[in-house]
Design a protein around this nucleic acid. Structure first.
Lengths: 198, 198, 198, 198
DNA sequence: ACATAATCGAGACGGTACGTCAGGTCTTTTG
DNA sequence: CAAAAGACCTGACGTACCGTCTCGATTATGT
C-alpha cells in the first residue's frame, strides 16, 4: 500500500533555479513601478530578469499569475490585524494601514496593473478573487472579535464590502485620495451602522 | 454683436452619417450582449454595423471610447432619480434600481467589457471617470435633497462612494450577488451613518 | 590556427524552420500562378503557407522581397548557358530558352507580379536590380566565350541590353509575343552587329 | 438639317473649369518631380491643386490616367522626327534626342512614376500601351523612309523594339546611363542589322 | 563514470487584433 | 449644375503581444 500522491521517482534532473524566480518577481515589481501605465509584457519581463520566456511559463500559468504573485509577496507584509479594545479602534487602525498601503507609489502601480491584467485574463481574475477573498476574511475576523458591539441582525458581509468597496473604487478611479481622515471617518460610519438595529 | 464662436463657413462637405453612428453603437451593444465574454474586436463591430473600420476611428479615438459611448446611452435610461418622502425611501429605490441594472445580463456584459477596455486603454479610462463622476453626482443630489436628515458634519462623498464602492466591488469580483435585500440593507446603513453625529 | 569567422556561440534559441521557408516560397509561386493578376497579399501567402504573418516579416523585409526570392529559385533552373560552336548557335539557343521561359504561364505571372511589386517597393526594386544584373552577366559570359567573332570595338554591354531590352519590353507591354522565330532573328541581328566594325 | 454632333442645348450649368484641369496636371508634375519616389496619392494631388478629389475623378477614370495625361503633354514636345540623308543619321538624331529626354530629371521622375502606376492599375497600363505604340509608330516611319537601305527580309518590328527595349530597360533599371555615345552606337548597330541579309 | 532527466537563456513559431493608409464613391453646400 | 470639402466603404499593410515550441548548454540525480 503506497501513498499515491508521492511520486514514484521523487526528482531527477536539474532543480528549479531560485535566483530565476526572484529575478522574475523583482523585475515585475520594478517594471510595474516605474513604467507609467505602459503595458508590461512578458517579453519585457523576461528581458529585464535576464530569463527565457519559457522559464516564466514553466512556473506560472499566465502573465496575470506572475503579477499577482509579485503582488502578494508585497502586500502580505503591509497589514497585520490589530487587536485593540473597541471595534472602532481596531477598524480605524486597520483601514488606515490599508489605505496607506495603496497610497505608496510602488504598490499602487502594481495593484493597478494587476487589475488591468485580471480584466482580460480569466485566469488572473480567478487569482485576484482568491486574493481579495483572503483580505475580506481578515476584516471579517476583525469584526467578529467585537461581536458584542453588533446589532444581532447586522449584515457583516455588507460592512466588509463597504470598506473594501470604497477602497478599490477610489483607488482605481482616482477621483479622490484615500486619506487617514477618510479611514477614520469610514471606521466611524461602519461602527455606527453595525450597532444600529433596524 | 456677433457670436464669435460660430464659424464663418459652418460646414462644407458631406456631413457625418447619423445612421452609421447609431449602427455602430447598436452593434457594440448587441455584440457585447450575446458574446459571452468573447473579446469584441473593432473589425467585428465594423462588420456588424456594415461600416468601414476607418469610420469608427474617425469619430472615436480608441475601441474603449466606442464601448463607453454605447454604454452611456444605455445607462442614462436605466436609472432615474426618485423623489420620495424620506432619505431612506429614495435611497432604497435608487439602489434597488441600480443593482437591478447591473443584474440584467445585457448591461452586465457591457459594463464588464467596458472595464476590461478601460483597464488597458488610458483614453477609455478617462471616459470611464467622466461616466462614473456623473453617476456619483446623481447620487449626491439625491442625498442633498434630504439635507435635514443629516448630521452637520456628515461626509457626503464618503457615503456616495460606499454605495458605488459596494456596487462595483461585488459586480466585478462576483463573490456575492447584488440582491434587492442588499440594496435595502445598504440604504438603511447609509441612512444611519448620515444621521449619526460623531 | 582557428577560423576567426566562426562565432564562439554559433547560435542560441530555436533555429529557423526550413519547412516554413519553403512553404512560404511555394505558396507564393502557387498563388502567383493561378491568381489571374489578382493581388497576392501577405495575409493570403501566410494563410496558404500555414504560417504566421510575422514569420514572413521576420525573414523578408517586404512583400516584394518574398516574391523575388520565390522567383530567383525558379529562374535559376530555367536557363542554363549552352556551349556550342558559334556565337550565333549559342545565342539562338540561349534566347530561345529564355523567351520560352517568359512564355510559360506560370513563370510569366510570377515575373509580372514581381515587376508590379518592384514598381512601388524600393527594396524590392533593389533586389530586382541584383537579379537582372546576374542574368546580364550570364549573357555577357556567353558573348565572351566567342570573342574571336567580335570587332575589337564592339560594345558588349549594349548588345546584352538590346537582348534583354527586347525581352522585357515585349513581355511587359504585351504588344508582340516572343516567338522562337524572334529569338532566332534577334540572335542573327546581334551576331551581325557584333562582327561589324565601325 | 442640323449638325447632330452639335448639342441642342450647347451647355447648361457651370462649365468645366479649365483652370482646375491645368492646376491638377501641374500639381501632378510638381509632385512627381520633387517627391523622391514618395508615393503620389490622389489626396495629395487634390490638396496641392486646391481641388476636390471628385473633380479629378470626374475627368479621369483613375489615378494612372491623370499621371499619363500629365506626361503626354510633357513628352509630346520633346522629340520630333528628323529628316536627314541616311538611315544612320536620322536614327542617331532620333535616339540621341530621345535618350536626352529621359535624362532630364523632371521627365525621368514622371516616367518612372507612370510605370509604377501602370504596374498595378490595368487602366493606366492600357494607356501606357497606347502611348508606347504611338512612339513605336514614329520610329517605324523613320525606318520606312529609308527602305532602300534595308535587306528585303529585315524584321522592322524587332529593330524598333530593340531601340525602345534598350531605352526602357536601362532607364528603369538604372544600371547604366543613356549617353549620347550609346545612342550613336545603337544607331550604328541597328543600321548594320537592317542592311544585312540573312 | 555515465546515462537520464529536468532546467536554463534564447528566440522562432502560429495566431489575433490593432491602428493606419490609399483608392475610389457618395453627399452636402456654395457659387 | 460644377466645384470644394470631406465622410464613407473597402481592403491591405506592418506591428505588438500572447503562449507554445525547439534548440544547445547546464546541472543534478541514480545506477
Amino acid at each position: 500500500m503506497t501513498d499515491s500522491t508521492a511520486p514514484r521517482r521523487p526528482h531527477t534532473g536539474r532543480r528549479r533555479n531560485e535566483d530565476a524566480r526572484t529575478a522574475i518577481l523583482d523585475a515585475v515589481l520594478v517594471l510595474l513601478g516605474d513604467s507609467g501605465g505602459a503595458p508590461v509584457t512578458i517579453d519585457t519581463i523576461a528581458r529585464a530578469a535576464g530569463v527565457g520566456k519559457q522559464t516564466i511559463y514553466r512556473w506560472w500559468p499566465s502573465k496575470g499569475a506572475v503579477l499577482l504573485d509579485a503582488l502578494t509577496g508585497l502586500a502580505g507584509d503591509v497589514v497585520s490585524a490589530p487587536a485593540g479594545e473597541t471595534l472602532y479602534d481596531d477598524l480605524a487602525a486597520f483601514l488606515t494601514a490599508t489605505f496607506r498601503g495603496t497610497g505608496r507609489a510602488s504598490t499602487a502601480a502594481v495593484l493597478r496593473s494587476l487589475v488591468r491584467e485580471a480584466a482580460r485574463d480569466p485566469h488572473a481574475a480567478g487569482l485576484v478573487r482568491t486574493f481579495t477573498a483572503a483580505r475580506r476574511e481578515a476584516l471579517r475576523e476583525l469584526f467578529a472579535r467585537h461581536g458584542d458591539e453588533f446589532a444581532p441582525d447586522a449584515d457583516l458581509d455588507l460592512l466588509v464590502d463597504q470598506a473594501y468597496g470604497v477602497l478599490w473604487y477610489r483607488f482605481l478611479l482616482e477621483h479622490h485620495p484615500l486619506s487617514d481622515r477618510d479611514a477614520a471617518e469610514l471606521a466611524r460610519g461602519l461602527t455606527v451602522q453595525a450597532g444600529a438595529r433596524s
